[in-house]
C-alpha cells in the first residue's frame, strides 16, 4: 500500500533555494518582472498612450502602477525588471525601481529571526491572497526561515495587506493594525495597495494603502510571485538576500 511518506519521498525536495540563490525562472515568470524599455524601443509616446493604467510616463515605468498586461511589449518593452523590486517610497513618488533596496534600516531588525505573518485582504481579487498563502506550500516553505502564519493580529509581527483599499475595509484594517504589538511592520502586497492597480479611480476605493496605514514596504506586481513577497518580508526583518 502506498503511503504519504512514500509519496513525499518519491517527489523529492521541492523547496526553493531562495534566498540562498536568486529566484529561478520557474519561480518568477516573465510577468513577475516589470517591463523596461529595450534597446530597440520605439518612441515612448505610443507606449504611454497604450498603457491602460498610466504606468509609463516620460521618465520611465512606474512599477507601483504596472499591472503586467504586456501592452507595451508591442512598443519594444520587455519584462526585464529586477526580481526583488519592493520599495519603501509611497507610490506616485517612487524612484527608479529598486533604488532604495537595503538603504534604510529594517523596521523589524531588533526582533531576531522568527516572524509571524498575518494576512489582511482589503479588496483584492483573491490572486494575491493565494500567492501569500502559497508561501506555506512545500515549494517555498517559509517556516524554514522562521516565518509563520498566525490566525490573529495579536500574535503578528508583519501585516501582509492585499487588495485595493475599499471604504468598508479601512476600519477593519486599522483595527488589525492596532491589535498588533510593537514592533510591527506592514507590507503591501501587489499593485492594488500601491496605487489601486487595474481599479484605480473606481468609486469607493482609496488611492493607496499608504493613506490608511503606515506601510513599510510595497511589493509591486499583479500579483507578485511568492518569492517577491518573501523578499519584502525578509527585508523588513533586515534579512534581505545579499548578492555574493
Amino acid at each position: 500500500m502506498p503511503s504519504w511518506i512514500e509519496q513525499a519521498a518519491h517527489r523529492g525536495i521541492l523547496t526553493s533555494r531562495y534566498p540562498r540563490e536568486r529566484g529561478s525562472d520557474a519561480e518568477v515568470p516573465p510577468t513577475g518582472r516589470a517591463p523596461v524599455p529595450s534597446a530597440s524601443a520605439g518612441p515612448t509616446g505610443a507606449a504611454i498612450a497604450g498603457c491602460p493604467v498610466g504606468a509609463i510616463g516620460p521618465e520611465g515605468v512606474e512599477p507601483g502602477r504596472c499591472i503586467r498586461c504586456a501592452r507595451c511589449l508591442a512598443h519594444g518593452y520587455r519584462f526585464g525588471g529586477p526580481v526583488e523590486a519592493s520599495f519603501r517610497a509611497p507610490p506616485g513618488r517612487a524612484g527608479p525601481e529598486g533604488a532604495d533596496v537595503g538603504d534604510e534600516p529594517a523596521p523589524l531588525a531588533p526582533l531576531g529571526r522568527s516572524l509571524h505573518l498575518f494576512l489582511v485582504d482589503v479588496g483584492s481579487c483573491n490572486a494575491c491572497n493565494l500567492e501569500v498563502l502559497a508561501l506555506a506550500n512545500p515549494f517555498y516553505d517559509v517556516s524554514r526561515l522562521g516565518l509563520f502564519f498566525t490566525n490573529s493580529p495579536r500574535h503578528a509581527d508583519v501585516l501582509l495587506v492585499v487588495g485595493v483599499p475599499t471604504d468598508a475595509m479601512v476600519e477593519p484594517a486599522r483595527r488589525a493594525y492596532d491589535a498588533m504589538p510593537f514592533p510591527k511592520a506592514v507590507v503591501a502586497v501587489g499593485v492594488c495597495p500601491c496605487s489601486g492597480g487595474a481599479f484605480r479611480g473606481n468609486p469607493g476605493l482609496r488611492p493607496s494603502l499608504g493613506d490608511i496605514l503606515p506601510v513599510d514596504r510595497f511589493v509591486p506586481g499583479c500579483p507578485p510571485t511568492p518569492v517577491q513577497i518573501l523578499d519584502a518580508v525578509l527585508r523588513v526583518a533586515g534579512r534581505a538576500r545579499r548578492e555574493e
Binding site: S152, P172, R175, A179
Partner: peptide, 10 residues
C-alpha cells in the same frame, strides 16, 4: 491597551 480583536468587527 488595544480593543478586543473580533476578526476585524467592532
Amino acid at each position: 491597551r488595544a480593543a478586543v480583536w473580533m476578526a476585524g468587527s467592532p
